[in-house]
Design a protein around this nucleic acid. Structure first.
Lengths: 184, 184
DNA sequence: AAACAACCGGATGAATTTCCTCCACTTGTA
DNA sequence: TACAAGTGGAGGAAATTCATCCGGTTGTTT
C-alpha cells in the first residue's frame, strides 16, 4: 500500500469515528469522505460497505479501551483511588456514549468475528480492573463489567447544543454522581 | 369538533409520542399516521407541521411531569423517603430520555411560547420538590433541578435490543446507582 | 528523471425516501 | 334523511443517498 493511501485511510477512520459519534450510524458516507478530505471513491475503495467502516471504528475504540484498562491495572495496586478515577475519566473522554449508540446496530447484527473477539477481550480487562477496584473498596460488589461500561456510555451520550448551554457542567456532575453511587 | 375526529387526534398524539421515543424526531409522519390507524391526510389536517405535532407531544409530557411532582409534593412532608423514591420511579417510567432526545431539536429552535412556558412551570415544580428532598437529607444540596431532570433523562435513553438482552436489569441498576450518588 | 503502477476525485444516473396536496367518498349528528 | 364534517391514500415533486466509472494525478522504483 502506498504511503499516501495509508494516510487517507487513516483520515477516513478518524473522521468516521467523529461523525458516527456526532450524527449516528447513518451519516452519509459522502460526508465522511468530505470530512477526511478525500473523494467518495476512496472511501469505497477502502471499505466495501458501511459495516466494514463501522468495524474498523469499533476496533479502534475497543483498542483505546483496552489501553486505558491496562494502564490502570498497573497502578491500581499502589494507588487505587487515583488509578480508578483516572481510568473512569479516560473512559469518559473516549466519547463512548456517542459511539456505542451509533455502533450498536452493527455490534448486534453485522459485527465481524474480529470485533466480537476484541469486545470480549476488552470486557475481560474491565472485569479485572473492576475486581481490583472492588477489593480496594472503591466499587460495590454487585456491579458487573458490562453494566459499568454501559453506565459510562449512558452519561456520555451527546446532548444537543441547547442543553450543553443550559447545563454546561452536566457531564462532570454526572460522573461525580455515578462514581459516588458506585461506591459500596 | 366531531367526537370521532377527537379520538383520531388523540390517537395521533399518543402514537407520535411512542414513535418519537422509539425512533427519534425524524420518524416518517406517515408511519405515525399508520400507527394511529388513520390516513396521512388526517395527520396534516390536525397538525400543520412536524413541529406542531412535537409541540403537542412535549406538552403532554410536561403535563405528566407536573402531575408527578405535584403528587410527590403532597406526601413528601409526611413520608419523605417514599415520596421521593416514588417520584423518581414515576419519572423513569415516563421514558423521558427517549423523548427528550427526540424533542430536543424543537425544544431549542421551534418551540412555541406555550411549551416554553410549560417547561418553566415544570422545572419550578421540580425545584420545589428537590428543595424538600434536600431538607429531608435525601439529596445533596448542589444538585440543580435541570441537572436532576437531565440525569433521569440520560439513564432512560433507549437501548438497542441487543443491549437490553445482555443487561436486562440495566435501568433499575442505573436508577439505584444514581439515587445513591445523589445522596449527600 | 523517466516510466509505470497505484491511486485519486467527483460527476452521474439509479434508487429510495419523504413530503404534502387533492378530491371522490364515508360517517356522525341534528 | 340530509348535510356538513371528516376521511383515506394515490401520486407527482423534491431531496437524499448510493455506488460506479474513467480521465487524470501522484508516489515509487530504478
Amino acid at each position: 500500500m502506498r504511503s499516501d493511501a495509508a494516510k487517507r485511510r487513516e483520515a477516513l477512520v478518524r473522521e468516521a469515528r467523529r461523525l458516527f459519534a456526532a450524527h449516528g450510524s447513518d451519516v452519509a458516507l459522502e460526508s465522511i469522505a468530505d470530512a477526511a478530505g478525500v473523494g467518495i471513491a476512496t472511501l469505497y475503495r477502502n471499505f466495501d460497505s458501511r459495516a466494514a467502516l463501522a468495524d474498523e471504528v469499533a476496533s479502534a475504540i475497543l483498542s483505546d479501551m483496552q489501553r486505558a484498562a491496562a494502564a490502570a491495572l498497573e497502578t491500581i495496586g499502589s494507588t487505587p483511588e487515583t488509578a480508578w478515577l483516572t481510568y473512569v475519566h479516560r473512559l469518559v473522554e473516549l466519547d463512548l456514549g456517542a459511539l456505542s449508540a451509533a455502533l450498536a446496530d452493527f455490534v448486534t447484527s453485522e459485527m465481524s468475528g474480529t470485533v466480537r473477539e476484541a469486545q470480549e477481550i476488552t470486557l475481560d480487562g474491565v472485569e479485572k480492573l473492576l475486581a481490583a477496584a472492588k477489593s480496594s473498596g472503591l466499587v460495590r460488589p454487585d456491579l458487573g463489567a458490562l453494566e459499568f461500561v454501559l453506565a459510562i456510555g449512558m452519561i456520555t451520550r451527546p446532548h444537543p447544543e441547547a442543553i450543553r448551554a443550559a447545563a454546561p457542567n452536566l457531564v462532570p456532575q454526572l460522573v461525580s454522581i455515578v462514581l459516588a453511587g458506585m461506591r459500596p
